[in-house]
């Protein structure tokens, strides 16, 4: 397996892991958003979805372990690559001008780390329900009420919205990069690939933002 180790240790191999795990996490985000949007269908639909998820614990745990594994690999390899990147330029420039790099691409580490903190909070908030007594008092499938209670606080909603915007930025660079890193490249489609990241990032971010906004504006109520 020496070739495998060598590949993973190479710069391109490392990026492959980040790209593939990133893609997996994007898949999760799409599924997660699709589930969450059931809030606009109604209380029962959301509860049914939550219940359905837990019907097959084996699958659920496999997915959970897979998700955590992907997240760990995504973060771990990013840290490794990033340390190498820092080491590659021991002395910086007195003056540096960027020509092409987007804000999103230059803030990947920042947006990624913020998202990590956000995910921990998000899990505490809605999965383990340790931050809010009112939410803790609800049954496990009363997701509809959880959301309404959770987003009734403007501060919490604001935090969610900020995190979601960062997620959108992270994805806008990340998704397009996947094509580049995997070498999926053809002049005929390259424009599409380069637009897909910002497009999907925007759609997903907007999708998530609709929920706190709907709660705050009273569009969705108990």
């Amino acid at each position: 397996m020496s070739w495998f180790k060598r590949t993973l240790n190479s710069s391109i191999g490392g990026k492959l892991i980040v790209a593939v795990t990133g893609l997996g996490l994007v898949g999760f985000i799409i599924a997660h958003l699709s589930g969450n949007l059931l809030i606009f269908v109604g209380r029962e639909a959301l509860a049914e979805y939550a219940e359905g998820l837990r019907k097959f614990p084996a699958i659920l745990w496999a997915l959970r372990i897979g998700l955590v594994g992907m997240a760990v690999a995504h973060i771990g390899f990013t840290i490794k690559l990033n340390l190498a990147n820092k080491a590659a330029r021991p002395v910086g420039y007195a003056k540096k001008t960027y020509r092409r790099a987007t804000l999103a691409s230059r803030t990947m580490v920042l947006s990624g780390l913020t998202l990590l903190a956000y995910i921990v909070y998000h899990l505490l908030h809605f999965t383990w329900r340790t931050t809010d007594a009112e939410i803790a008092a609800l049954g496990p499938y009363e997701v509809y009420d959880m959301l309404i209670i959770g987003f009734s606080s403007p501060a919490i909603s604001a935090f969610y919205i900020i995190a979601t915007v960062l997620l959108g930025m992270h994805l806008s660079h990340g998704i397009s990069s996947v094509f580049q890193t995997l070498g999926i490249n053809n002049p005929k489609y390259n424009k599409l690939f380069r637009c897909l990241g910002p497009a999907l990032g925007t759609v997903l971010a907007l999708g998530f933002i609709t929920i706190p906004v709907a709660v705050m504006t009273g569009f969705v109520t108990r």
Binding site: R100, A101, S176
Partner: peptide, 17 residues
């Protein structure tokens, strides 16, 4: 690529600078 990594160049983060 192996030699490139050995020389201590960094990795690509697809910014196209």
């Amino acid at each position: 690529v192996n030699q490139m990594d050995k020389e201590g160049f960094g990795n690509c983060t697809n910014q196209y600078e």
